[in-house]
Measured scan of single mutants.
Amino acid sequence: MTYKLILNGKTLKGETTTEAVDAATAEKVFKQYANDNGSDGEWTYDDATKTFTVTE
């Protein structure tokens, strides 16, 4: 399945997607991506749209 990440950071904004077997796997990928790019904030997940959002 395709999962989407929306970044609403102070310095990093945008979207990216990943293919993953489940939401937990996608979350690990996205959290590593956000960490690698210095983005940290409040995470939410919408199962209906398969979208993670991180807001700083």
Rank of each mutant, 00 (worst) to 15 (best):
I6N: 03
G38L: 12
T51R: 02
K13D: 05
N8P: 05
T2H: 06
L7N: 01
N37K: 13
G41P: 03
A24T: 08
K4C: 07
A24F: 08
T18R: 04
D40R: 12
N37P: 04
D47M: 07
L7A: 04
N8L: 14
N37G: 06
D36W: 10
L5I: 03
G14I: 15
W43N: 00
G38S: 06
V29F: 15
L5W: 02
A48F: 10
D47V: 08
D47Q: 09
T11F: 14
A34H: 03
A48Y: 09
N8K: 12
Y3N: 02
D36V: 10
N37M: 15
T17E: 08
K10Y: 09
A20W: 02
T18E: 03
N37H: 14
G9T: 15
K31E: 03
N8G: 05
D40A: 12
K4S: 05
N35C: 12
T25Q: 12
K50G: 04
G14H: 13
Y33W: 14
K28M: 11
T51V: 05
A48R: 10
A48E: 12
A24G: 07
T53D: 01
G14F: 15
W43I: 03
K4P: 02
K4G: 03
A34M: 13
E42I: 14
E15P: 05
E19I: 15
T51M: 03
T44S: 12
T2N: 05
E56I: 12
F30C: 01
D40G: 10
V54W: 11
Y33F: 11
K31A: 05
T11S: 11
A23M: 11
W43L: 04
D36C: 11
T11Q: 09
E15S: 10
A48C: 08
L5T: 02
D47Y: 08
G41S: 04
T53S: 05
K13L: 08
T16Y: 15
K28G: 06
G14D: 09
T16W: 15
N35V: 14
N8M: 14
T25W: 07
W43K: 00
G9L: 15
F52Y: 05
Y33K: 03
V21Y: 11
A26C: 01
G41Q: 05
Y33G: 01
T44Q: 08
Y3K: 02
V29E: 06
A24Y: 09
F30L: 04
Y3G: 02
D22M: 02
Y3R: 02
A23T: 07
T53Y: 12
N37A: 13
A20C: 07
F52H: 00
I6Q: 04
V54Y: 11
T51K: 02
A20I: 02
D47N: 08
M1P: 07
L7Y: 10
L5P: 02
L12D: 07
E42W: 11
T51P: 01
G14V: 15
A34S: 04
E27N: 04
K50D: 01
G38V: 07
K50F: 08
D46T: 04
G9K: 06
E42P: 04
N35I: 15
L7G: 02
T11L: 12
A48H: 09
T53G: 02
I6C: 07
K50H: 11
A20T: 04
A24R: 09
N8A: 09
Y33D: 01
S39A: 15
G41F: 12
T11A: 09
A34K: 03
K4W: 11
T51F: 01
T44H: 12
N35G: 09
I6D: 02
T25S: 13
G9C: 14
T16K: 10
V21C: 12
K31H: 07
D40W: 15
Y45C: 00
L5Q: 01
T16V: 15
V29P: 01
M1G: 10
K4I: 11
Y3F: 13
V21I: 13
A34E: 02
A24W: 09
D46G: 01
T51C: 03
L7H: 03
N37L: 15
Y3D: 02
L12R: 10
Q32T: 07
N37E: 06
E27A: 10
G41M: 11
D46H: 05
L7P: 00
A24L: 10
F52D: 00
T44W: 07
I6F: 06
T25E: 13
T16I: 15
T44C: 09
A34Y: 08
T53V: 08
D40M: 13
A26Y: 01
S39I: 15
K10F: 12
A24N: 07
T18N: 03
E27R: 09
T17C: 11
T49D: 03
D47T: 07
K28W: 08
V29T: 09
A48K: 10
T49S: 09
L12C: 15
L12Y: 15
L7K: 00
S39D: 05
A20V: 04
Q32Y: 04
W43Q: 01
K13Q: 11
